[in-house]
Nucleic acid binder design. Structure first.
Lengths: 412, 412
DNA sequence: CACAAATAATTCAATCGTTGAACAAATAGT
DNA sequence: ACTATTTGTTCAACGATTGAATTATTTGTG
């Protein structure tokens, strides 16, 4: 009912091969076991002759490799299965956060092949200095990747704030960054990766969005639509709808912290009253649990809360119960509005999920119209530490899989 | 950052022409003034030779027509502009609502070429009987369309309830319909339209969704993302994101009536407390304005409210102010969550928009973080009466424009 | 009036990617 | 050794797009 058939521009003779390369490579990427050329012909509807020609290109470009044939019964020539190559293109993921820099390399199959985390308080550090250090770490990652037979095809950088289309970090309050021209600051350094047609050299994006994208594309495949909530000082959400991140009109979607859960409640810095952030934001939980809130970095406060809850501390348990209830009120509204069936707790909420999930689920059960016959799942995020950096690297390799022709044009 | 390049299936030689037909026809449909073949070649990137060949097919299939050349200065052969044909395919839109049946025919350019409304109370009428009457009205519309040189290429039916993918109306509470197999009931009647490859003979969908789609595609073009709210007994919304209707995991998105605006407030039939419907639903507004609620059909209650408000009736004005405020609380949350900049008031809210907009805007101003520097528009829907039927017919012709090859295959 | 310049549209042979049928490769079964 | 089966490759036909040349149609100038 929503026709999306018209292409954006001219479809040429050469477009046939480009699109069928993407089709076949995507099918190989999505397969549960290595498909043969004959399998791919059946699955795609292309002839065996065409599939063989396409696969020949993919093999020559180091995008796929032939697997050992699986044992089978019956007559017939043994099939050679195809897998994504583990020596070929890879994506570089970078992250600047409040108390760490992270760099990782993810290969075509989504496997993390390199990971570096540099722990430091980045708040007093100038953006240019932080980025220079990140470039150094990226260089080390690139060398390590080369030793593993990988070529970095592009990079994505995650930052905890609002980023515009051109990579200008408009505001990252917890870092103290405002209007930081990241691409310009990095332009004075050597390139981080190879140049690949169709793949931008660097994309800068919000870390909650990249974590949500990482969750979307993690294996085994999960739902195509879900709400991914990051609990920090502010509460952010990545809204994934029908397999795509919904960014909103200006790229600022996911602002869940100012959904009203008590409209005549506590005043909020946004000017409204009773906003979710006042009840379930990290500072609110910490205060309600009776912890001293100054001096504790974000990760430590979360870890401390989890320890106390694990030990049965009544104050911590009550604080988490109340936060979970407030979170559940907001989440139920979102679930009703968008008809979602999965809520993922990430960021600072992930380690607290055992205590947050029950009250969230209780509110959903009482407020979501369809909860009785169509249950909603609330679970912690599957990507672990540095989810945003891993999600960032993953977004690069997904571009290669979606448009292999650019990579092939580069390698001849 | 969200690669969508891989096609769903094999791309063939014939796919080239199919896709370029859609490209060129879509460009003609979207143009402000009739484009020439040379204009289209420049705009699409195809060669003039290819555009001429494609246009020849479109002309032969009665999808486009040549316009009178516009007067111009300077040397050169006069260009012949191209427009969507006004004698060719059209879409049939049908609607079953509580107190009327509606049938309309919309041509390729989006113009309503036939409109019939049959007023009656449909609640005591069996589904099969209501549909039989609708088929009769549709037959008359088809004959009228034929007299105007139009061929009906497909039909869509709007109903006020939940519909599954197969056209089974699961629940339409205001009509008293439950699990009504609409396609099966219509199968015993003659076909409503011609058979066109790629266009389903009949699609059944929720009326709020179809009205939102109609709004999306009305002219002049408006925003690609907006919240379209229909105020009736229940409050439904069509959520249009990036030019597509977001339906949710099970097709039940847009349930805004149970967003909490007073969490410790009035109990709701959903089991929650303080839901929007209890404050801004039609019954709530009518009761707050002091009107007798029995015996008044929906349209009449809305009209009566508008009259009273126009006349300055204090009770009606206060009721609308309060409803608007509650609506604003909910809407602000949605706007924050999804980063939208447009809210459209349709259905029963459209005639009440002059009084609902100010309090909605006030709540948005105080609760939406970005309202100060990026204003949100709240406005009544542009499609008038029978918006859902018009939206339904429009969805059929948009399929033709998006996939003209099916129509051309039918007409040789 | 003839010619040049400018713009729109058509003609035509070359190119390229997919196709379907035939063929080759590699196995199990009789 | 031969047949049946499945996988993968070879090859000429086909159709859509291309780029260059040509034709069509106008205005402007000498």
């Amino acid at each position: 009912m929503s026709p999306t058939n018209a292409p954006a521009g001219a479809v040429r003779q050469a477009s046939l091969r480009e699109l069928n390369l993407a089709l076949v490579l995507g099918r190989i990427a999505a397969a549960d076991r290595p498909p043969s050329r004959a399998d791919l012909a059946t699955a795609t509807g292309l002839t065996r002759a065409t599939v063989s020609a396409v696969v020949e290109d993919l093999l020559a470009g180091r995008l796929v490799a032939e697997a050992e044939p699986a044992p089978r019964a019956g007559a017939g020539r043994p099939a050679r299965g195809l897998v994504l190559a583990d020596r070929g293109p890879a994506g570089l993921g970078l992250e600047v956060n409040v108390d760490y820099l992270a760099v990782c390399v993810v290969d075509l199959a989504g496997k993390v092949r390199h990971r570096t985390v540099h722990r430091a308080d980045l708040r007093p550090v100038a953006p240019a200095e932080a980025l220079a250090l990140l470039v150094e770490l990226a260089g080390q990652a690139r060398a390590d990747a080369a030793r593993q037979g990988l070529t970095l095809a592009g990079a994505a950088l995650a930052v905890p704030g609002l980023v515009d289309d051109a990579g200008l970090v408009r505001l990252a309050p917890n870092l103290g960054w405002r209007d930081v021209p990241v691409p310009a600051l990095l332009a004075g350094h050597p390139p981080l990766t190879e140049q690949v047609p169709g793949v931008p050299a660097l994309v800068v994006d919000n870390e909650a969005n990249l974590a949500a994208l990482g969750e979307l594309h993690s294996r085994p495949p999960g739902p195509a639509s879900f709400l991914h909530i990051s609990g920090e000082v502010g509460i952010g959400a990545g809204i994934v709808l029908n397999g795509a991140l919904f960014r909103g009109v200006r790229g600022w979607s996911g602002e869940i912290g100012h959904l009203p859960v008590h409209p005549q409640g506590l005043p909020c810095r946004c000017g409204g009253r009773g906003c979710l952030e006042q009840y379930a934001g990290q500072e609110a939980i910490v205060a309600a649990a009776g912890l001293a809130r100054a001096e504790l970095p974000a990760d430590t406060a979360t870890a401390r809360l989890a320890e106390l809850a694990e030990a049965g501390d009544a104050g911590a348990l009550r604080a988490l119960e109340e936060a979970g209830t407030a979170l559940g009120v907001a989440v139920a509204g979102v679930v009703n509005l968008l008809d979602l069936d999965t809520v993922v707790l990430g960021g600072g909420y992930a380690p607290l999920a055992p205590w947050l999930c029950p009250p969230v689920l209780a509110e959903i059960a009482s407020r979501v119209l369809t909860a009785a016959w169509s249950p909603v799942t609330v679970r912690p995020a599957t990507l672990g530490a540095e989810a945003a950096a891993v999600g960032a690297a993953g977004s690069v390799v997904r571009q290669i899989v979606a448009q292999p022709a650019g990579w092939l044009a580069r390698t001849g």
